[in-house]
Design a protein around this nucleic acid. Structure first.
Length: 312
DNA sequence: GCGTCCAGGTCTACC
DNA sequence: GGTAGACCTGGACGC
């Protein structure tokens, strides 16, 4: 689909802010979709609005802010506030980095993180469905296989945005996947038992569900409760999908945080998830999500200090 | 080459 | 309310 230039605007993001670190994070996570393009400080990506409309987005740093160019087949004036809000959320406009970094006065881990990745805002560009696909594909699978499942979903059922001389493939819409039988999904993308979860989530969202901007306004416990109504979404997945940044410990990250907090490698990483989560809540409170993201993007540096045993 | 185990969770049956 | 066991698939490992 060839998209035409639509709304262009500049966002002033509060300091500290590093555009490159925010949209192209060190561990290689994509901003919104794995097929987006980041070259010479410019990002070409896409977002999907609540209506289901796909927008192409080109962004680059401009002074203390960010120049945002959106591309659409047709853009309504009424959609402009939603675009601005989604981009602000995607660039971490609301992240309280000053307060997070201030914890570094007493917490040596945060002191190091804020030094290593200064200005990296968490950002939450995607909608509920894209994050649900990510979370479910991450379950019980090595990274390679998770990536294969997600790539297959995007290539087979995703939507292409051609704009500004670039082509970006975006996650499938809930309406699109709601029309696919779970047996077909399981076979085509080797999703295994996850296929019925994905089909179920697609149907629920296609039938009407709070969007990411609405979830942001709820209390953290309420958001998690709402998200856990999805089939196949438990504590871990709900915290990945939530725009309020929880502490989604899995076996891999539980091992890392146990080594950082307690200085030892747990023999049963799954068994320490509850304990590590409780300590994180007590130690970092509302900034536990910041610590989680910062740590996973700073592993090479932390390995030297904390002797983390396994990086991948 | 073949069989077994298990991995970046969740659900369900059973106690 | 707590907890085994099952769930897809595919790579690693032992034989």
């Amino acid at each position: 689909m060839e998209l035409k230039p639509a709304k262009e605007f500049t966002l002033d993001i509060p300091e500290p802010f590093d555009f490159n670190l925010t949209v192209k994070k060190p561990a290689g996570w994509s901003w919104a979709t794995p097929s987006e393009i980041f070259e010479d400080g410019k990002l070409w990506s896409a977002i999907r609005l609540k209506s289901g409309k796909l927008l192409g987005v080109m962004m680059k740093a401009k002074g203390s802010g960010v120049l945002v160019r959106s591309y659409a087949k047709v853009l309504l004036d009424a959609e402009i506030p939603e675009i601005r809000e989604r981009i602000k959320l995607g660039l971490g406009y609301y992240d309280d980095l000053d307060s997070f970094y201030a914890l570094g006065k007493k917490d040596p881990l945060i002191r190091q993180l804020s030094k290593d990745l200064h200005g990296m805002r968490l950002g939450f560009p995607n909608g509920v469905f894209e994050m649900a696909l990510l979370a479910i594909c991450l379950q019980m699978a090595p990274t390679k296989r998770s990536n294969e499942m997600m790539d297959c979903l995007i290539q087979r059922y995703g939507e292409k945005a051609d704009f500004d001389g670039r082509s970006v493939k975006f996650w499938p819409s809930p309406k699109r996947l709601a029309r696919v039988k779970d047996r077909v999904l399981a076979t085509e993308c080797k999703l295994g038992y996850r296929a019925k979860y994905i089909a179920g989530v697609a149907k629920m969202i296609a039938g009407g569900f709070p969007d990411v901007l609405e979830l942001r306004e709820m209390k953290e416990e309420e958001v998690l409760s709402v998200l856990k109504r999805f089939p196949g979404v438990g504590d871990y997945s709900a915290q990945i999908i939530s725009p309020q940044f929880g502490f989604p410990l899995d076996v891999w990250s539980a091992r890392i945080f146990h080594e950082i907090i307690f200085g030892s490698t747990p023999s049963d990483p799954r068994g320490v998830i509850k304990k590590v989560t409780e300590v994180a809540e007590k130690r970092w409170g509302r900034f536990k999500g910041h610590v989680f993201v910062y740590v996973l993007h700073d592993l090479p540096n932390l390995q030297k200090r904390y002797g983390i045993s396994r990086l991948v």
